[in-house]
Design a protein around this nucleic acid. Structure first.
Length: 767
DNA sequence: GTACGTTCATTTTTT
DNA sequence: ATGAACGTAC
C-alpha cells in the first residue's frame, strides 16, 4: 500500500507528503498537485505513521473538494478506512463543533444558520428598529462592515470603542442590534459560525483541550485565503501538538475582500519557527504556452519581491489565442462557435470546456449564445437554486417550523401567500412582541390565548392591538405554523413538505403571483426541493429536518458542479479556483471588468485582480482563449471599452492574435449536432445538490436550573428560553412570585401557553 | 390590504 | 435590462 501511496509522485511531492511531524508549509504553484499532496499526506499519516483517522482534521476550500478528497482516500486506503476522518470547509467544521458544544456558550444547539439573504433582511430590520433611513445607510454596506469586523474578531463593544467617525458610530449601533436579533432568533450568520467557535475555545479551555486532543493532525488547503478568524481557529487547534500542515500559493490569493490576509501565509514561519517549508514549482497541468502567458501576467506586478519560477515538462502546446469581439454578444458567439468546433473535431467534449468571467452578470450573454447554439451548459453561481424566491419561501416555512423564534423567516412567511397581514400589522406585531420581550411567534401564541383562554389560562397580558379581522388572520397563520411544528416530529421531511404545500397551497399561490406559465415553472422548482428532501428519508425523523436545513445553508454553489453530465461549465474566476479544464475561455478582459472598476483606485485591489487573471489562465490544461469586447453594455448602457492592462504585459509572440471574428474559422461545423439543449432561463436547469448523510448529535445536556428553597426573586424572566420534559421548547412570557413559589407563564412551541409552578415543572434554562 | 403603474437605483468577487 | 420601492386606485 505504501508503494502505491508514493508512486506517481515526484521527489518534491514525496518530500512534502513524507515530511516529519510538526508544522509544514507547502508553497505550491498552480497545477503542482496541491490537493493531491494533501490527500496523500493524509494517507501517509494513516498508513505509515499509523495515525488514527479519528485524530485528523482537514480543511478544504469547498465541500466539493472535501467530497473528492474522501473519495480519493477511499481508493488509496480502501473503502471506509478513512470514515472517521473529518474533512470539510471552515464553516461546516465549525458548525459541527457548535452543534455539539455551543451549549457551553449558553445557547441552543438547534440554531438556525442565516445565509446572505437572511442577513440582508435582518440588516434592514435593524435599520428599521433604529429608525435609520435605508437610503442614507445602505444595508449592504453596513452589513459588510459588520462582517469585516467579525472576521477580524472585533466584537460590537470593541467596534464602538474603536470607532472614529460618525459612520462607525452608526455601524456600531447596528452591529449591537444585529447581534441581539440574531440571538433572539436563535440564529447564527455565516461569520458567527467561526466567531462563536473561537469564543467557545477561548472561553472554555477544557473544551479546546478536548478538540486539541482529538485533532492532533490538522491540514489546511488554500492557506493564503484564510482570514483572521480562520487563522486564529487553526492556531488555537494546532497550538498543542503543532502538527499543522498548510498548503497555499500567494499568487492565488483572491479573497482579500472577505478579509483574507496574505500575511497569514507570509508569517507562517514566524508563527512556527520550526516549520519545514517546501517549495513546489513544477506544474503538471498546463502546456508551456499557457504557463508562459500566465507567468507574464503575474510578473507584471513590479512590487513582487521573489517570483516563483514555474516550469513544466509538458509540451509547448497550442498558442494561446487572443481575440477582440465587437460586443458581448459577439464575444459569446465567438466562444460558442469555437467550443462547438472543438467538440465537433472530436478532440474535446463539452465537459472539457469552461467559460470564465469576472462578474456573474457577464454570464447572461454567454448563456444566450449557448442556448442559441444548443450546447448543453451549466452555470455555476448567478441565481442559485437555493436563492430563488419560491425556494426560499418554502425553506422559510420549514425553518420556522424548525425554529419558531427565527424572526426573519417568520416575517418572510407571515404574509406569504397574502393572508391579510400587511406591513402595518407586521409592524404592530413586532412592536407588541418587543414590548412583551418575546419573539413574534410567542406573541401570536399570547394573542391566541387572549382570544381563546384555555383552562390553565395565564393572567391576561397587555391587550393586543389588533382588530378582530386582523386577529383572525394572525391566528390562522399561527395554526398553520403549529400544524407544521406538530408534524415535524412525527412525519418524514417529505411528508412535512407535503403537508406544507397542501396546507398553504403553494401551487395556487405561485400561479396567482406569477401567472400560469411562470407559476408552473416555479412550482416545479419547489417540487424539486421536495426531491432533495427524499435524500434524507433514511435518517431518524427528528434528524431529517435539521440535517436538511443545515446542508442547504452550507452548500456552496461550486459544490453543485456536475461532472457526470457532459456540459460546458460557465463560472466566475473566483469559483474556478482549484478547478481545471482542458479548454478555458477567459472573457471580458477589459479595463473596468478585469481589473474591475471598483479596484482601480487601490493598488492592492489591483494586484488582486491580476492574480485573478493568473488563476483563470492557469485553470487551462491544453487550450486557453482570451477575449475582450470593443464595446460592452452594462445596465443597459453601452460603452467603448479598452483591453485589460494585463494583456499588455503579455509579449506578443506568446499569443496568436486572431483577426477579428476568425476564431470561429467559418461554419464548417455542420457536422456538429448538438446533443441536448440547455434549459431556458427560469427553468430548473440547475443541479440539485446530492445530500450526504450525517447523523444528528445526541440531545443536549442541558443545564438544570437549581431551585432555591424559598425564592425571594424570580429566576425566570420574559424572553428566556426554557425546556420542559413534556411540552418541549418554550419562551418565558412572564414570571411572578406566588405563595413562596414562582409561577412561570411559558409559551411552548406548537403547544400553546401554559402556566407552571417552577418548583414542580422542572424547567431547564437554556441560557 | 392588494393590484397595478411609475420611478429609481443597481452589480464585484463568496462561505 | 431588471427588479425593488413607492404611489395611486380599487
Amino acid at each position: 500500500m505504501s508503494t502505491q501511496l508514493l508512486e506517481n509522485l515526484n521527489p518534491a511531492q514525496q518530500k512534502a507528503v513524507q515530511a516529519t511531524e510538526g508544522p509544514v508549509l507547502v508553497l505550491a504553484g498552480p497545477g503542482s498537485g496541491k490537493t493531491r499532496i494533501l490527500t496523500h499526506r493524509i494517507a501517509y499519516l494513516i498508513e505509515t505513521l499509523k495515525v488514527d483517522p479519528y485524530n485528523i482534521l482537514a480543511v478544504t476550500f469547498t465541500n466539493k473538494a472535501a467530497r473528492e478528497m474522501k473519495e480519493r482516500l477511499d481508493v488509496l486506503l480502501g473503502q471506509g478506512r478513512a470514515a472517521a476522518l473529518i474533512v470539510g470547509t471552515f464553516h461546516s467544521i465549525c458548525t459541527r463543533f457548535l452543534r455539539r458544544d455551543i451549549v457551553h456558550l449558553g445557547r441552543e444547539r438547534d440554531f438556525t444558520i442565516y445565509d446572505s439573504d437572511d442577513q440582508m433582511r435582518l440588516m434592514k430590520r435593524v435599520l428599521k428598529d433604529l429608525n435609520l433611513d435605508e437610503k442614507r445607510n445602505a444595508p449592504r454596506a453596513i452589513h459588510s462592515e459588520i462582517s469585516r469586523a467579525k472576521n477580524e474578531l472585533v466584537c460590537p463593544e470593541e467596534f464602538i470603542r474603536l470607532g472614529r467617525t460618525y459612520k462607525d458610530e452608526v455601524t456600531g449601533r447596528c452591529y449591537v442590534r444585529y447581534q441581539q436579533l440574531l440571538r433572539e432568533s436563535n440564529a447564527l450568520d455565516f461569520d458567527d459560525l467561526l466567531v462563536e467557535t473561537v469564543q467557545l475555545f477561548e472561553q472554555h479551555p477544557d473544551v479546546l483541550d478536548r478538540y486539541q486532543e482529538r485533532y492532533r493532525y490538522i491540514l489546511a488547503d488554500e492557506y493564503q485565503d484564510t482570514n483572521r478568524v480562520q487563522y486564529v481557529l487553526l492556531k488555537l487547534l494546532a497550538s498543542k501538538y503543532r502538527n499543522l500542515f498548510v498548503v497555499g500559493d500567494e499568487d492565488q490569493s483572491v479573497y482579500a475582500f472577505r478579509g483574507a490576509d496574505i500575511r497569514n501565509i507570509r508569517s507562517f514561519e514566524d508563527d512556527y519557527p520550526e516549520a519545514q517549508v517546501i517549495l513546489l514549482e513544477q506544474n503538471y497541468r498546463s502546456t508551456q504556452a499557457i504557463l508562459d502567458v500566465a507567468q507574464a501576467v503575474i510578473r507584471g506586478d513590479v512590487r513582487r519581491k521573489h517570483v516563483k519560477r514555474l516550469w513544466t515538462e509538458n509540451d509547448k502546446g497550442a498558442l494561446v489565442q487572443l481575440q477582440e469581439a465587437y460586443d458581448q454578444d459577439e464575444e459569446g458567439q465567438l466562444v460558442v462557435d469555437e467550443a462547438a468546433r472543438l467538440v465537433a473535431s472530436g478532440e474535446y467534449k463539452l465537459g472539457d470546456i469552461a467559460i470564465m468571467y469576472r462578474t456573474n452578470a457577464q454570464s447572461r450573454a454567454i448563456e444566450e449564445a449557448l442556448i442559441g447554439r444548443g450546447l448543453r451548459y451549466q452555470i455555476v453561481g448567478g441565481t442559485r437554486f437555493y436563492e430563488r424566491k419560491e425556494i426560499k419561501d418554502a425553506l422559510a416555512y420549514l425553518r420556522v417550523a424548525h425554529n419558531p423564534y427565527d424572526t426573519i423567516n417568520f416575517s418572510r412567511v407571515l404574509n406569504w401567500p397574502p393572508r391579510g397581514i400587511g406591513d402595518r400589522t407586521e409592524d404592530e406585531l413586532n412592536r407588541w412582541a418587543n414590548s412583551l420581550g418575546v419573539p413574534p411567534y410567542v406573541a401570536l401564541q399570547l394573542l391566541n390565548e387572549q382570544a381563546n383562554p384555555s383552562s390553565e389560562a395565564p393572567e391576561p397580558t397587555k391587550p393586543a392591538p389588533f382588530s378582530p379581522r386582523t386577529r383572525q388572520s394572525l391566528l390562522s397563520f399561527l395554526r398553520v405554523l403549529d400544524e407544521l411544528i406538530a408534524a415535524k416530529t412525527e412525519q418524514s421531511l417529505d411528508d412535512l413538505m407535503g403537508l406544507l404545500f397542501s396546507r398553504v397551497d403553494f401551487e395556487e399561490a405561485l400561479r396567482r403571483e406569477y401567472g400560469e406559465e411562470e407559476g408552473r415553472d416555479r412550482w416545479n422548482n419547489v417540487q424539486e426541493l421536495r426531491n432533495v428532501a427524499l435524500n434524507y428519508i433514511n435518517l431518524p425523523i427528528e434528524a431529517q429536518l435539521p440535517t436538511f436545513l443545515e446542508e442547504v445553508a452550507l452548500v456552496a454553489d461550486v459544490d453543485t458542479i456536475k461532472e457526470d453530465q457532459d456540459a460546458i461549465t460557465c463560472i466566475t474566476l473566483h469559483q474556478a479556483k482549484g478547478l481545471e479544464f482542458p479548454v478555458v475561455f477567459l472573457v471580458g478582459l477589459e479595463e473596468g471588468l478585469l481589473p474591475h472598476s471598483r479596484s482601480l483606485d487601490d493598488r492592492d485591489a489591483l494586484e488582486e485582480e491580476r492574480r485573478l487573471f493568473y488563476v483563470g489562465a492557469t485553470r487551462a490544461r491544453k487550450q486557453l482563449y482570451l477575449l475582450y469586447a470593443f464595446r460592452r453594455s452594462t445596465y443597459g448602457r453601452t460603452n467603448v471599452s479598452t483591453p485589460s492592462r494585463f494583456l499588455a504585459s503579455i509579449p506578443k509572440e506568446l499569443v496568436a492574435q486572431a483577426p477579428k471574428r476568425s476564431i470561429s474559422s467559418a461554419h464548417q461545423t455542420s457536422m456538429f449536432t448538438p446533443r441536448t439543449f440547455g434549459t431556458a432561463a427560469g427553468g430548473s436547469r440547475r443541479a440539485t445538490p446530492s445530500a450526504s448523510r450525517t447523523s444528528q448529535p445526541p440531545a443536549a445536556k442541558q443545564q438544570r436550573a437549581a431551585l432555591p428553597q424559598t425564592p425571594k426573586e424570580t429566576r425566570f424572566f420574559a424572553g428566556l428560553k426554557v425546556r420542559h420534559a413534556l411540552f418541549g421548547e418554550g419562551v418565558v412570557v412572564s414570571s411572578k412570585l406566588v405563595d413562596g413559589d414562582e409561577e412561570v407563564t411559558v409559551a411552548f412551541s406548537g403547544k400553546g401557553v401554559k402556566r407552571l409552578l417552577a418548583s414542580f415543572a422542572n424547567l431547564e434554562m437554556s441560557e
